[in-house]
């Protein structure tokens, strides 16, 4: 049965692995940027590779789900060949289990290899990622464009989670195929559900799987990262950089009593005098921040620290693999009871 599964799969496998090989070669030839340098400043070509790497690691699981998963069973249903396959001396369960295992393994390996290559290539950039602050923007232009690896969108394009995504997308495609029995329809549904699950996990699961850390941080000229001024001259938005490498989930200004407030209106003009753009302006005046601090205003930051990167990766991979296992069980069950 492994022979048949491989014989049917090898064309698709070669297409994806061939593309993968090309990508890895490109990454190896260009080599990781800024070796050893502590400053993150990329050429435009490097910048393109960096962004393309993230997109590809996100895209590969979707491609696997659509082109490996969805047609796995529907192709046999549409061509009627399942009637040939199921009448050899092999049960449907073994037939499907073999196909799932072989293709699933290939999916995990492909995603793992790509993630490994991209993670290696972008390692120095991830390490050099700085929290974005106004001060930093002024001193080193272009150096702060990179998110830390624990925060989206980088998190899903590094480490082991792409393996979980790929396996899940693949089994999702197979399940959609078994339920819908039409290749094109199953492909569309696979993509829609896969994206929906990723978004749901990003907003509803990942921030909460480990209770987020909280810190109150004094507002200083060095760490202020955003200041929005409303039409009436008050402060609409004020943010400071979180701890280095952290994924900041929420931030709010609190007063001496610990109550959430907006910063007093004078902060706007004090920190950033009108008609002066931050890039050309020297460091904001220190008195403002001293006054804010004296009045007890601080930032309360909720975040996932950089140190939790591997714990979050492990948990999220486990979640996707568990979902995959559940879907696999359903696929095998449906193949026995709902097909043809």
């Amino acid at each position: 049965m492994i022979w048949l599964a491989w014989r049917q799969f090898r064309g698709q496998a070669m297409a994806v692995y061939g593309l993968l090989a090309v990508l890895v070669v490109i990454l190896v030839i260009t080599g990781p940027p800024l070796p050893g340098s502590g400053v993150a400043r990329l050429t435009s070509a490097e910048d393109k590779v960096y962004n393309a790497g993230i997109m590809l690691v996100y895209g590969l699981p979707a491609i696997i789900g659509i082109f490996w998963g969805a047609p796995l069973v529907t192709r046999e249903l549409e061509a009627g060949t399942y009637r040939l396959a199921w009448n050899q001396t092999v049960t449907r369960t073994r037939w499907l289990a073999t196909k799932l295992a072989l293709t699933g393994l290939a999916a995990a390996t492909a995603a793992g290899l790509l993630s490994l290559a991209v993670t290696w290539w972008a390692g120095s950039i991830d390490a050099a990622s700085q929290p974005s602050t106004l001060a930093h923007v002024v001193s080193v232009t272009g150096a702060d464009a990179f998110a830390s690896r624990v925060s989206p969108p980088v998190f899903g394009a590094r480490g082991i989670v792409p393996v979980g995504y790929a396996v899940f997308a693949f089994v999702l495609g197979v399940a959609a195929g078994i339920l819908l029995r039409r290749t094109v329809l199953a492909m569309a549904v696979t993509l829609a559900v896969f994206v929906a699950v990723q978004v749901a996990v990003l907003f509803a699961v990942r921030p909460y799987v480990i209770p987020a850390a909280q810190d109150t941080i004094p507002i200083t000229s060095a760490n202020i990262s955003k200041l929005g001024v409303s039409g009436s001259g008050g402060v609409a938005e004020l943010a400071v950089a979180g701890p280095r490498g952290a994924w900041v989930l929420a931030a709010e200004t609190v007063d001496a009593a610990g109550q959430a407030v907006t910063a007093p209106p004078w902060t706007a003009t004090c920190v950033m005098p009108p008609r002066q753009v931050s890039e050309t302006h020297p460091v904001p005046s220190q008195e403002c921040f001293a006054k804010l601090s004296a009045l007890g205003y601080r930032q309360l930051v909720t975040y996932q620290p950089a140190s939790r990167f591997w714990a979050l990766q492990g948990i999220e991979t486990a979640i996707f693999l568990t979902l995959s296992a559940l879907l696999t069980w359903l696929c095998i069950r449906w193949t026995r009871t709902r097909l043809p």
Binding site: Q8, A79, G80, T81, R83, L84, N87, Q88, T89, T91
Partner: peptide
Amino acid sequence: LAKVGYVAQDTPTY
């Protein structure tokens, strides 16, 4: 399965 052979309608092949 070994005991029964089945050639389905339209004789499907890969």
